[in-house]
Write a protein that binds this DNA or RNA. Sequence first.
RNA 1: GGACGCGUAGCCUAGCCAGGAUAUGGCGACAGCCUCCUAAGCUGUAAACCGGGGGUUCGAAUCCCCCCGCGUCCGCCA
Length: 573
Amino acid sequence: MGKMVLDPLLAFGDRAEEMMIAALTALGTETRLPVELPPEGMGDFAFPCFPLARELKKSPAEIAKSIAASLGTDAMFCKIEPSGPYVNFHIEPEELVRVTVESIMELRENYGNAESSGIKINLEHTSANPNGPLHVGRARNPIIGDTLARILRRCGHDVTTEFYVDDMGKQQVTLTWGVENLVQEGEIPEKADHALVWYYQEASRRMEQDPKVLAEIDAIISKYEDRDPEIATRVQTNCQRVLDGMTQSLRRLDINFDSFAWESKYIFDGSVERIIEQLRAMECTSEDNGALYLDLDNFGISGKENKFFLTRGDGSSLYSTRDMAYHLDKLANYDRAIDVLGEDHKLKAKVVGIGVNLLGQEKPVEPVFYSFVSLPEGKMSTRRGRVVYLDDLVEESIALAREEVEKRRPELDDVLKRGIADAVGIGAIRYNIIRIQAEKQLIFKWEEAMNFEGNSAPFIQYSHARASSILRKATEFGDYDLKLLAHPSEVQLAKMLARFPSVIRTCGTDMACHPVAAYAFELAAMFNQFYRDCPVLVAEEKLKNARLAMVTASKLVLMNALDTLGIVAPEEL
RNA sequence: GGACGCGUAGCCUAGCCAGGAUAUGGCGACAGCCUCCUAAGCUGUAAACCGGGGGUUCGAAUCCCCCCGCGUCCGCCA
């Protein structure tokens, strides 16, 4: 066994580039050609020769010809040929299959992971105001955040996921006022977030209509800001109850947090006050009736209004100012701070970044934005009650999955059926949100959210179950000779398996999740073609053993891809 | 008014940052495939002036400019 290959495709790609550099040097040029992935049937790596045409005063096609002629042969490539203006490298299938399958068999669930980077990342996500249950509009945040955390961990980083609990906002005080002054009638939901949201909605209505209520709420906020410990306990108790409900919902989606940061901490430890004084002393800030603001003209940001307020007229802090204190704290303890934020936070995130830099922290705050999920009839609103709650979507999806299991696998026992329904129902939700590029607007439709066919989680889970089923039936298999795997579907599948580490790597640098979903789908589709073309259990003994290795490798990578998406990979479907 | 993002077949979507060879898939439609390892599967067909217009380039879905549509922000709310 040679040295362990973490990324098979990269090994081949590096070799191709190395050979090209040697050829170009021999041609007497410093120019380096970019590597491309050519269309189907034209090899595995392509180098377009256009950039050299002017310099060498020859046509790209002639250049491609002469480069290819000087390249000779290599163990890693079965064919290196000019194709019009391109030099195309065709990977030696036997080598590709061998390196890839061996690598997966050795690395198992770690295949796709990079070596440890030693970089400590604080990844903040969800951070929803604890005033009611999570709705599907907000659900995009935890799903992106959790998937990104899984990707970055596979990239070798030390990731801490964090929920920033906004326990100092007006919304939370409004909720507390409601709990303390109103009586809820009728049937009260059992889950705390669903039970308490009524108080928030009703208190909001009263506050809008009755100035006395508004004054009472403002008075509580003011005392809270003055660090009244008794008020803090009252508000935080309600926040905690709602927060428990939200985290319970997220646990069903296999989303967990490593830490919770409470906003009030930064008021109580004096850090907010400190940074306000530091900012007040700066040239870029001014006051308006006692309220401190940052003049955005200094930072190339323009709009209707260029004053970004940092305090109220009474000197009390505002959300973004407290956020600066929070981010200074994070950046003091971590190498990187990443925030998953709705697109409505773009300006605030920018200003928080500016503030943090003004206060002497040079590291950037790295935001990842996503666009809103809306309903066909418009934006979701907890206050107005125009929402689809995540808990309801999860129940519906699992129920629908359960119906499908009953239809397809009536013979299974109940525990197994329930496990499959959970995995399928929840997987479908995560998948259908994560498969779309984060900045794209999403309109929530029940039938799309619970899609079980085609480009969906169950499609991928199904391929994994097929692989598992084959392995279950092949009770034992002996040594295998990977040279026997030469069928086009086997080679194609191996190429797909080889891509996984580079997909994870680029997602980590781009901070994008949706390519993992696309990859998992393509891999599953490729496995299904292999399944159709290459019978395993009925094959002749030696071929069977080699194919069983292929199935094992496929199952492992399907599992790793699903795990990166936070989706369960059941043995049966 | 200013700023940011999005606009790809009836619907959803990849590719855009690092411009190149016939623009990726899925849903839906139509036509096929279960005496054969799970048909939540597989095969095939039809369907796209890549929002519109200029420009840069040998070459633009991709880069630049203008315009249109959608979303979001520009609050002493969060």
